[in-house]
Design a protein around this nucleic acid. Sequence first.
DNA 1: CACATATGAATGAAGG
DNA 2: CCTTCATTCATATGTG
Lengths: 189, 189
Amino acid sequence: MEEGLSGFCIKGSHVRGNNGNNNGGSGTKCGRWNPTTEQVKVLTELFRSGLRTPSTDQIQKISTQLSFYGKIESKNVFYWFQNHKARERQKRRKVSIDENDFISRDNIFNNNNSNKISSSKRFFEVKEYQSDQRVIETLQLFPLNSFDENEQEKLRFHANECRETSSFPYTINNPEMDHPPLDLRLSSL
Amino acid sequence: MEEGLSGFCIKGSHVRGNNGNNNGGSGTKCGRWNPTTEQVKVLTELFRSGLRTPSTDQIQKISTQLSFYGKIESKNVFYWFQNHKARERQKRRKVSIDENDFISRDNIFNNNNSNKISSSKRFFEVKEYQSDQRVIETLQLFPLNSFDENEQEKLRFHANECRETSSFPYTINNPEMDHPPLDLRLSSL
DNA sequence: CACATATGAATGAAGG
DNA sequence: CCTTCATTCATATGTG
């Protein structure tokens, strides 16, 4: 279920006036692009097709096409891909530790915990996603014209870019413990 | 909206305001993390200790420790700090808005891009600040007709916000809004 | 229950 | 590309 599928929320409720015509001046505070569902759909589709880092030309073309659905600027497309890609990766970033899975079966302090979601998700949980290699293949299947695509996602594997800055010997609390060793000192983290 | 960090559910009560994109608005309920008082206490304490933007590693550890008190995921910790920090700043900002309100962050995007390196450089122009044009609050007052109760609520909710009601080129639910000739093939870009 | 508010979650936009 | 900030959306909870 990733973005392509229906599992996404449609927010945006307010009448986002979305100055279809920014008369040059943009409201100081009311001017954030709010994509329409159609726009999102198209962008997502492109992303799924393998497009990750559109070139300037691509951005322009996409933007032009999407403008049909509502106001949109090139930078919106640019940012969208940046964010989408980054967050996609972020979620994929796995944090080895997983004993978080067993939730406190001894929920002593369960005030009102809504334990509906099966917590199998970690920080930025993983979803089945295609690898970068796959992306490249896809793009090759659809040779782009009208520009020289040279920035095709390098094969960066990026195993685990976690900044393990803490060489600190941290010991995980024993599940058996009655009380977790809460050490609020930042240095303990 | 991408695949949220959580394999979350959908809600969809709102409509993205514009062109015929709407969703049935089914109110699927899903749970969201609800911190226990102990968890909040610890988080607050950490925050007070100076921690503002925990690293992934720290988040992990905090999450692990807090899991003792109840269900919690790393992302919850992440969001907690993000929100807490942002909201505190937000409050602070409200108090200190003095006369000098031209903190205008001017446009950083210029067109003078020499278009050499990466094709995806920021080239898009950004709306610039014109004068101190205030957004005219021409939000039409919604007649007390009975909209769909959902819609009504939305509108009311945002009525007091700075939303421009400019003439959006596309009328809401314009039947003409058929799908434009969109070619999603990358090669068409 | 309606409305108000607090806050969790998401994401557009930048900055580096 | 990564991280952070700002703003918004959504929901839980509180109060009348």
